[in-house]
Design a protein around this nucleic acid. Structure first.
Lengths: 334, 334
DNA sequence: CTGTTAGCGCCTTCAT
DNA sequence: ATGAAGGCGCTAACAG
C-alpha cells in the first residue's frame, strides 16, 4: 500500500534525469539514451510507479477513454461482442465508457453525442441501426470502428463475419439432411445481418435447385416472441415444412416453443437450425443446431483495430470464422 | 459544433468575474453574490459551457465517474443488474466505468484497485466473492454500495432481495403441488445467495413436516453443466424424486437436459423450478417455473443509493420483491 | 538526445 | 464575498 503517491517527479529524481525524459520513456515515442532508459525503468519498477491517467489526459489532450456504443436489446450475441471489446481494451491504458443505443437510430445518435461530449478518444460501435450516411459525417472527426455490422464504404473499419456464407451452410445442412420444405424466420429486414442470412438461405436453395417459396419466409424481429408468431402464422396459413432456419437462436427458441404448444415434435416432425449459438442453445430440448459466431474475438479485434488505427499502425484482423454447431435439433429424413 | 473549447476562463471574462468565482458557482459550495451568480450562470448557458471533467478531476475535485465492479461470468442476472446501474446513472452527471471481477476474489481486488486508480468518486459492486473483511477496509475510503449480495455489517449499503423467502416460496409451490421428494441443486456454497436459497428450501420442508434428506441435495456451481451433473449424480445414486428446485435457471436448464437424455419426462415424471427467470426460461420445453428477481430495479436502486450517500442524503430503497413465475414445468401430483 | 519552460482546465488556500 | 496565485501530474514545444 503505497501511502504516498509517487509521481513522475519522484522517479525523475530517483533516476537522475528530468521529468521530460521520464515522460519520454513512458510514452516511448522519442529516442532516449539506453542507459537512462533502463535507469528510469528500474526506478519505476522499484518505486512501483503508476502513471496518473487523469493528469496524462489533461496534458495530452486525450482522455484515454474509448466510447463504446452498445445495443442492450436483442440477442445476447451483442453482449458478448461488448465483452470482447472490454477484453481487448483491458490490457491497454484505455478504459471503455459505454452508452446504450437500444437499436434505435435516434437514441444511438444521442448516445454518440454523449460519448463525444465525454471527450472519448475513439469510438467502437457494436451493431446498431444508424444509417450509414449519419456515420459518414462522424468518420473523420473521431477514429472509429464498427463491430458485428457491415457497412458499405467502411470495409476496412468493419469487423464482422460472412453472414451469407454461414447462413448458406446452415441451410445446406438441412438440405443435405433430406429437407426440401424449409422455412426461414427472418430478423429485422432493416438489419443487414438479417438480409445477409436470408440471402444465404436463398443461395443454398438455389444451388440445390430448390425453388424459393415466399410463403415459407416469415419476417420476425430477432425476439423469441417473434419466433412463436412466425410459426403460428406458418401453421395458420397451412404451409407445410419439415425444417426451419431461424435468423437467430432467440427466434429458434420461440419457434420451438410454438411447436411444443402445438404438439409438433422436434426434430421428429420438424427440424430447427438457429444462428448465434447462444449459451443456452446447447441446453434446449432438444439441443439446438446453430451457427456459432466468434463474438468475443470480434469484439477484441475491434478494440485492437481501433487502437492500431489511432496510432496509425497497420492492423491485420485475425481470421473470424463461423462454425455450424450440429446438435440434435435436426433430423435426417427420407 | 463549438469549434473552440470554451473554458472557465472564457465564461469568467464574459461574466466579468474571476475564474475562482466561476468555480464557486460551479461547485456551489461557497456563498456567492446572487447577481454574479446569475451572470455566471447566464454566461455558461450562452456560451454552452461544459466543465472539463478531466481537469476537474486532476485538480483534486471529483472525477464524475463511478466505478462499477461487474461479474461477467455466471448467470445473466448480474448483467441485468449492471444494466440497471447504468440506467440509474444515466440521468445524472456521473458516468459509470466498469471493471470485471469474474467472481474471483483476486481479480476483484485488482479490478477495484484499477477503479480507484481511475479516481472514481464512488463504487458499486455487483455481486462478487470478495470476503467482507477485504471490503471493510475500503468502506470509508470511498463511498460504496453492494448490489445483489448481502454482507454482514453492511446492511444499509446492500441492495438485495430476500433469497431465503423466495426460495421457500418456490419450494412450497412444489410441496403444495403434491411433491414430497424434492431435490435441490445448490449453487456455489461460498456464495451467500446459494446458501440462502438452500436455507429457504430447508425451511419449506421443515414447515411442511418433511424431513430433510441430504441425499437429495447436490452441490452445483450455478452453471448449466453443473445442473446436468447434478441430475446424473442423483440418478447414479439411485435416489428417487419427483421435483427439483434448482439454485438458478442455468442449473435448471442443465437438469432438464440431463432428463431429456435419460428419457425422463418433464413435468410428467419430474417437475422443475428454477431461480432468476432469465429471458429464455419462458421458452424452454416446457417453460420453466422460476423465481423472478427485480434485477434492473435493484441496479437502479443501487445507483440512487450511492448518489444519495455521496451527497449525504437520505435514501429509502424501493420495495424490491421477488415473484414466483408459474409455468408448465411443474406437475400437480396425487 | 535531453533539460527547461509553459501550460492543460480547474480547485483551493490566502489575503483582501 | 472575491481575486490572485499556486499547484494537481504530465506532455509538448523549444533550445541546446
Amino acid at each position: 500500500m503505497a501511502r504516498k503517491k509517487i509521481t513522475i517527479k519522484d522517479i525523475a529524481e530517483s533516476a537522475n534525469v528530468s521529468k521530460s525524459t521520464v515522460s519520454r520513456v513512458l510514452n516511448n515515442n522519442t529516442p532516449v539514451n539506453e542507459e537512462k532508459r533502463l535507469a528510469v525503468l528500474e526506478a519505476m519498477e522499484r518505486l512501483n510507479y503508476k502513471p496518473n491517467v487523469v493528469a496524462r489526459s489533461l496534458a495530452g489532450g486525450n482522455s484515454m477513454t474509448i466510447g463504446v456504443l452498445t445495443q442492450n436489446i436483442g440477442s445476447p450475441f451483442y453482449d458478448k461482442v461488448t465483452q470482447g471489446v472490454i477484453q481487448g481494451l483491458s490490457d491497454t491504458d484505455y478504459s471503455p465508457i459505454f452508452a446504450d443505443g437500444r437499436w434505435d437510430p435516434e437514441i444511438e445518435t444521442s448516445a454518440i453525442k454523449t460519448l463525444i461530449d465525454r471527450n472519448v478518444d475513439g469510438l467502437i460501435m457494436v451493431g446498431g441501426n444508424l444509417p450509414g450516411s449519419d456515420l459518414d459525417s462522424l468518420r473523420d472527426s473521431k477514429p472509429m470502428v464498427i463491430v458485428a455490422r457491415r457497412l458499405p464504404g467502411w470495409d476496412n473499419k468493419c469487423i464482422s463475419v460472412d453472414n451469407v456464407a454461414a447462413a448458406k451452410d446452415a441451410t445446406e445442412y438441412l438440405i443435405n439432411s433430406g429437407h426440401r420444405k424449409i422455412a426461414h424466420i427472418m430478423g429485422i429486414p432493416e438489419h443487414q445481418d438479417a438480409r445477409d442470412r436470408y440471402m444465404g438461405y436463398q443461395a443454398a436453395l438455389r444451388d440445390s435447385g430448390i425453388a424459393l417459396d415466399e410463403d415459407l419466409v416469415v419476417k420476425g424481429n430477432f425476439s423469441s416472441q417473434s419466433g412463436v408468431l412466425a410459426i403460428e402464422s406458418l401453421l395458420m396459413k397451412g404451409v407445410s415444412f419439415t425444417g426451419v432456419f431461424a435468423g437467430n437462436d432467440e427466434m429458434a427458441f420461440g419457434a420451438r416453443l410454438a411447436m411444443y404448444r402445438r404438439g409438433i415434435r422436434v426434430p421428429e416432425d420438424v427440424s430447427i437450425v438457429g444462428y448465434d449459438d447462444q449459451p443456452n442453445s446447447a441446453f434446449m430440448t432438444p439441443p439446438l443446431t446453430t451457427v456459432a459466431q466468434p463474438a468475443e474475438p470480434m469484439g477484441e479485434a475491434a478494440a485492437q483495430a481501433l487502437l492500431a488505427f489511432m496510432r496509425n499502425q497497420e492492423f491485420v484482423p485475425p481470421r473470424l470464422d463461423t462454425e455450424l454447431i450440429v446438435r440434435e435439433s435436426v433430423h435426417r429424413i427420407r
